[in-house]
Design a protein around this nucleic acid. Structure first.
Length: 852
RNA sequence: GCCCGCGUGGUGGAAUGGUAGACACAGGGGACUUAAAAUCCCUAGGCGAUAAGCCGUGCCGGUUCGAAUCCGGCCGCGGGUACCA
C-alpha cells in the first residue's frame, strides 16, 4: 500500500492545472460569470497562516462556483504602497521599491504551492507604474468632475523631527522616534468630496442584501445622519464680525436647560480672541497638543476656558449664558459650536461640575423618582422614543417623547424665525494627501503664475524617482530638486511638482475594477468591466468594515461619473464576507532590564512543566492568545506546515475547526489531525480503487445524498467547518460500509465534495477511481431530493420544557395520534402522576411538550 | 470616550426559538505488535454510584409551552475610531 505523499502529488496536479490553463479567466462561452475576490495582501514579507485562511476560503468559493457551471474570475495582486516599506528603508538602509518587490516575489513563491485556483496572469502590484499611472489619470478625471477639492486639515506634527506622523506613529501623545509631545498642525491638503455622497452612500446600504448586517450598521453610524436645529445665540458687546454664534443641536427640546455655549479652539471666534488675549492663545495651544485621532480627542481630559463673552438665550432675551472654549468641541462637525445641557448629557455634566456652571433639568421620568442632576444625581438620558414629563418645555405637550419634543421645538424655531431644522452628516471628506515618498504621486504642478495645474495625461505616469534616501526624517520628494522642479503644463514656465503622495486607501479603492482588464491603457476597459463587474463575492477582514469598503463604494460612483465603470457597478461588491483572524500564543522572556523579548513559536519547546527556549533551555512566559503580529513574533509561517504535511492539510485545517467569521487559535496538533484524515481518504481509495463492484446500498446512498446536500449548503453559506464535520461523518460511514457499487461511487463523490478544499488529494482520488478528466473541471454533484426525506422521525418529549423521553413515529402521523403516544409514555405517566396535563404542544416533526 | 461584534466541556467548536455539546483535538481504557509507529474499537459536561435525579451555554433579570438563540441591564474580550493596511 502506498502512503499518500503530498510532496510529489501536489506539484503534479498544480502542473496539470497550469498546463490546461484551468483557472485562466476569459470572457468566452455562455456560462454565467462569477467574480470572487479576497482583499489583496500587503507585501509585509512572508505570508502567514491568516493569509492561507483568507485565500483558501476564496478558493473554495472559486472552485465550487466553477463546478456549478460558472465562468470564474479569481485574481490576486498586492497592495504595495505604504509606510512599512519606508520604515524598512529607514531601519536597514535599503530602498522601499526593492524591499516591496522582493517581498512580493517571496509571497508569490509561498502562495503558489498552496494550489489556489487563481488567474496569475492578471497579477499586479499597486506600486507598478502601469497601475499608479492609471490611478493618476483617474485622479485628474475626478478633479475635472468636481470630486476633488483642496483645503486645510490637521495632521500630527512632530516638532522635533519636523515631520508629519501617522496616527500609528504617535504613542501616548508622543512621536515614536523623537519622543516629543505631538501637536496638531494645519496643512493644505487634497480631499475627495465623499461627503457629497453621504445621503446616497447611506441609502444604498439597504440594497446590500448579502452584506453582513453589522458592517452596514457600522457604515450607517459612521456616515451618521442626524436631524437637528441650527440657530444662533446673539453675542452681547460682540467683537466685530462675531454678532452671533451659530450652533447645531440634535436636542433642541433641551434648549431651556442650556447652561453654557462652547466653541471649538479652532472656531473663528477662538482664533480671533487669540490675538488679543494671551490666555486664550495659551489655552488653544494646550488644546492642540496631542494627536488627531478621535480616540485621543475624546478621551483627553475635558478642558474649558471662559472667554468672558456672553450671549443671549434665543427664547429669553433676559437670559445670558457664558461662552467657553472647550477642547471636546470639534470644528469638523456641525458648526464648531454647541450649547451644553448638563442635565441630560454626561459629558456636559462632567464639564459644568468641573467649572461650577448651573444644571437645569428640562424633563423627568413620568413614573418613578430620580435624584436630579441638580441635586448630585446622574444625568437623565432616556431613549428618544420614551415618553417623559417636560418640566421646562420649548414646544408641544408636557408629556411627550423626545422625538415629538424635538420636532415641536424645530417647528417653533422655524415659525419664529430663530433657526431651522437641518440634516447633518458625521462623514467628513476624505483627505488623501500624504507627506510621504512610497505612494502614488499626486499628478499636479504648482505654478506661481497659474496656481495649481493638473499634469497632462500624456505625461503620465508621474513616476517616483528612484534616487532617494531616508537618512533624515521627512518626505524625500520635498528635497529632490530634479524631480520636484518641472515646468508648468499650462504656461511652460518653471514650476514645482506636488510632493504629497496619495493615501494607500486610494490604491485599494479601485483595484477590483482593474483586475477585469489589468493591462488596459485606460484605468478600465468598459467591455471587460461590463462583463466581469460586480464582484460577486468579496472576502476580507472585519477591520475593513468602514474605511476601505466605504471609500471603494464612493470610488465606484466617481468612476461611473467619469465614465470608467458601468452604472451597475455603483455598489461594486454584491456579497461580502468578513472572516476572523488567526491568533497564537505569544512567547516572552525578559532581558537584563526586564524588557520583553519575543520568540517565534518554532524556537520554543512546550513541556508539561512549562515552556522553554529550544536553544538555551531558558524558561518562557506564555501570553495566552493574540492576533498574529510580526512584532510579537507569534506568527506561524505556513511553509513549515506545507513542507511537513502538504498544502491540502494546511487548507483543510484552516477551514475545518472554526467558523470562518470567528478568530481562530492556531494549534499544531490540529494540523496533524487534519493530515491523518486526508491520509485516510487516500487509503480508502487505494483499498477500493479496483473495478466498481455491482450491488447498491440504499442506506449508504441516502447518507451520501444527505451529505451532498449538507456540504453544498455549508459551502454556499460559508459554513466550511460544519460542511467538513459532515464530510468526517460520511467518511466514517463509508469506511465501515461493505463493498458495493454505491461505496465506490460514494468515495468518488466525496472526492468531489472535498475538491474545493483539498484539490490535490481530490484529483488523486478521482484519478485512482477512474474519474473523467480533471476533478477541477467536473460538474458539482447534485443531491436527489427524493433521497433526503426519512419515513420515520424521532420526536423528543418534554415535560414542562425538559426532555424526558422520545418516541419514534411515522413522519406523517396525525397530531392526535402523536398526542396519544406521548401521553402513554412511561416518563410522562410518571410525571403526570394520575393527573391531566394543562396543555399539550405538538410541533409536527420537531417536538412534543407536555405542560403540567 | 464613541460605534460594532463576541463569550457554550480540558481545547476548537455544533445547534439561530424545539433532544445543548454534532464533528474533531487533547485525555483515559482496550485490540493488533517482540516493541514502537501506523491503524482500529470503547469512553468521555459537572455533581451523583454505573441508577433515579439535580445542575449547566460569562453574570443578573425578563418574554415564551419551550431560550445558547429574542429583549433589558452588567462584566470580560476583540475590531474600528478617518495618516497601520
Amino acid at each position: 500500500m502506498t502512503r499518500y505523499d503530498p510532496a510529489t502529488t501536489e506539484p503534479k496536479w498544480q502542473k496539470a492545472w497550469d498546463e490546461a490553463q484551468t483557472f485562466r479567466a476569459t470572457m468566452e462561452g455562455d456560462r454565467p460569470k462569477y467574480y470572487v475576490l479576497e482583499m489583496f495582501p500587503y507585501p509585509s514579507g512572508r505570508i502567514h497562516i491568516g493569509h492561507v485562511r483568507n485565500y483558501t476560503m476564496g478558493d473554495v468559493i472559486a472552485r465550487y462556483k466553477k463546478a456549478t457551471g460558472h465562468n470564474v474570475l479569481h485574481p490576486m495582486g498586492f497592495d504595495a504602497f505604504g509606510m512599512p516599506a519606508e520604515n524598512a528603508a529607514m531601519a536597514s538602509g535599503g530602498h522601499p521599491k526593492t524591499w516591496t518587490y522582493d517581498n512580493i516575489d517571496t509571497m508569490v513563491a509561498q502562495m503558489k504551492p498552496l494550489g489556489f485556483g487563481i488567474d496569475w496572469s492578471r497579477m499586479f502590484a499597486t506600486c507598478d507604474p502601469e497601475y499608479y499611472g492609471q490611478q493618476q489619470a483617474l485622479f485628474l478625471d475626478f478633479l475635472e468632475a468636481g470630486l476633488v477639492t483642496r483645503r486645510e486639515a490637521e495632521v500630527n506634527w512632530d516638532p522635533v523631527d519636523m515631520t508629519v506622523l501617522a496616527n500609528e506613529q504617535v504613542i501616548d501623545g508622543k512621536g515614536w522616534r523623537s519622543g516629543a509631545e505631538v501637536e496638531r498642525r494645519a496643512l493644505t491638503q487634497w480631499f475627495f468630496k465623499i461627503s457629497a455622497y453621504s445621503e446616497e452612500l447611506l441609502d444604498a446600504l439597504d440594497q446590500l442584501d448579502d452584506w453582513p448586517a453589522r458592517v452596514k450598521l457600522m457604515q450607517a453610524n459612521w456616515i451618521g445622519k442626524s436631524r437637528g436645529l441650527q440657530f444662533s445665540f446673539p453675542v452681547i458687546d460682540a467683537p466685530e464680525g462675531f454678532g452671533e454664534i451659530e450652533v447645531f443641536t440634535t436636542r433642541p427640546d433641551t434648549l431651556m436647560g442650556a447652561s453654557f455655549v462652547a466653541i471649538s479652539p479652532d472656531h473663528p471666534l477662538a482664533k480671533h480672541l487669540e490675538a488679543a488675549k494671551p490666555a486664550v492663545a495659551a489655552f488653544n495651544a494646550e488644546c492642540r497638543k496631542g494627536g488627531t485621532t478621535a480616540e485621543a480627542i475624546e478621551t483627553a481630559e475635558k478642558l474649558g476656558l471662559d472667554t468672558g463673552i456672553r450671549v443671549r438665550h434665543p427664547l429669553d432675551p433676559d437670559w445670558e449664558l457664558p461662552v467657553w472654549i472647550a477642547n471636546f468641541v470639534l470644528m469638523e462637525y456641525g458648526t464648531g459650536a454647541l450649547f451644553g445641557c448638563p442635565a441630560h448629557d454626561q459629558r456636559d455634566l462632567d464639564f459644568v461640575r468641573k467649572y461650577d456652571l448651573p444644571v437645569i433639568s428640562t424633563y423627568v421620568p413620568i413614573d418613578g423618582e430620580i435624584t436630579l442632576p441638580e441635586d448630585g444625581g446622574d444625568p437623565y438620558v432616556p431613549p428618544k422614543t420614551e415618553q417623559v414629563h417636560y418640566t421646562k418645555l420649548v414646544a408641544g405637550d408636557a408629556y411627550q417623547t423626545g422625538e415629538e419634543a424635538i420636532d415641536a421645538a424645530i417647528a417653533l424655531a422655524e415659525q419664529r424665525g430663530i433657526g431651522e431644522g437641518v440634516t447633518k452628516f458625521r462623514l467628513r471628506d476624505w483627505g488623501l494627501s500624504r507627506q510621504r515618498y512610497w505612494g502614488c504621486p499626486i499628478p499636479v504642478v504648482h505654478c506661481d503664475a497659474c496656481g495649481v495645474v493638473p499634469e497632462k495625461k500624456e505625461n503620465l505616469p508621474v513616476r517616483l524617482p528612484d534616487d532617494v534616501s531616508f537618512d533624515i526624517p521627512g518626505n524625500p520628494l520635498d528635497r529632490h530638486p530634479t524631480w520636484r522642479d518641472t515646468t508648468c503644463p499650462a504656461c511652460g514656465k518653471p514650476a514645482k511638482r506636488e510632493t504629497d503622495t496619495m493615501d494607500t486607501f486610494v490604491d485599494s479603492s479601485w483595484y477590483f475594477a482593474r483586475f477585469t482588464a489589468p493591462h488596459a491603457e485606460t484605468p478600465t476597459d468598459m467591455e471587460a468591466a461590463q462583463y466581469w463587474m460586480n464582484v460577486d463575492q468579496y472576502i476580507g477582514g472585519i477591520e475593513h468594515a468602514i474605511l476601505h469598503l466605504l471609500y471603494s463604494r464612493f470610488f465606484a460612483r466617481g468612476m461611473i461619473k467619469t465614465g470608467h465603470l458601468p452604472e451597475k457597478a455603483a455598489e461594486p461588491f454584491d456579497a461580502l464576507f468578513t472572516q476572523g483572524m488567526v491568533t497564537h500564543a505569544i512567547y516572552v522572556t525578559r532581558d537584563e532590564k526586564d524588557r520583553p523579548v519575543y520568540h517565534f513559536p518554532e524556537d520554543v519547546e512546550i513541556h508539561e512543566s512549562g515552556a522553554r527556549l529550544g536553544a538555551t533551555g531558558e524558561e518562557v512566559e506564555i501570553i495566552p492568545s493574540a492576533k498574529m503580529s510580526k512584532s510579537k513574533k507569534n506568527v506561524i509561517d505556513p511553509v513549515n506546515i506545507i513542507e511537513q504535511f502538504g498544502a491540502d492539510t494546511a487548507r483543510w485545517f484552516v477551514l475545518s475547526d472554526s467558523p470562518p467569521e470567528r478568530d481562530v487559535e492556531w494549534t499544531a496538533s490540529g494540523a496533524e489531525a487534519a493530515n491523518k484524515f486526508l491520509a485516510r481518504i487516500h487509503r480508502m481509495a487505494t483499498e477500493i480503487s479496483e473495478e466498481r463492484p455491482h450491488g447498491s446500498d440504499e442506506r449508504l446512498l441516502k447518507e451520501l445524498h444527505k451529505t451532498i446536500d449538507d456540504v453544498t449548503k455549508g459551502i454556499e453559506s460559508f459554513g466550511f467547518n460544519a460542511a467538513i464535520a459532515k464530510i468526517y461523518a460520511f467518511a466514517g460511514t463509508l469506511q465501515k460500509a461493505p463493498a458495493s457499487g454505491t461505496k465506490h461511487d460514494g468515495l468518488k463523490t466525496l472526492a468531489q465534495l472535498m475538491a474545493p478544499m483539498t484539490p490535490h488529494l481530490a484529483e488523486e482520488v478521482w484519478q485512482m477511481l477512474g474519474g473523467d478528466g480533471l476533478i477541477a473541471n467536473a460538474p458539482w454533484p447534485e443531491a436527489d431530493e427524493s433521497l433526503l426525506t426519512e419515513d420515520t422521525v424521532t420526536l423528543p418529549i418534554q415535560v414542562n420544557g425538559k426532555r424526558r423521553s422520545e418516541i419514534s413515529v411515522a413522519k406523517d402521523l396525525p397530531k392526535s395520534e402523536i398526542e396519544a403516544l406521548a401521553l402513554a409514555d412511561d416518563a410522562v405517566q410518571r410525571a403526570l402522576n394520575g393527573g391531566a396535563p394543562k396543555k399539550l404542544i405538538v410541533v409536527p416533526g420537531r417536538i412534543v411538550n407536555v405542560v403540567i
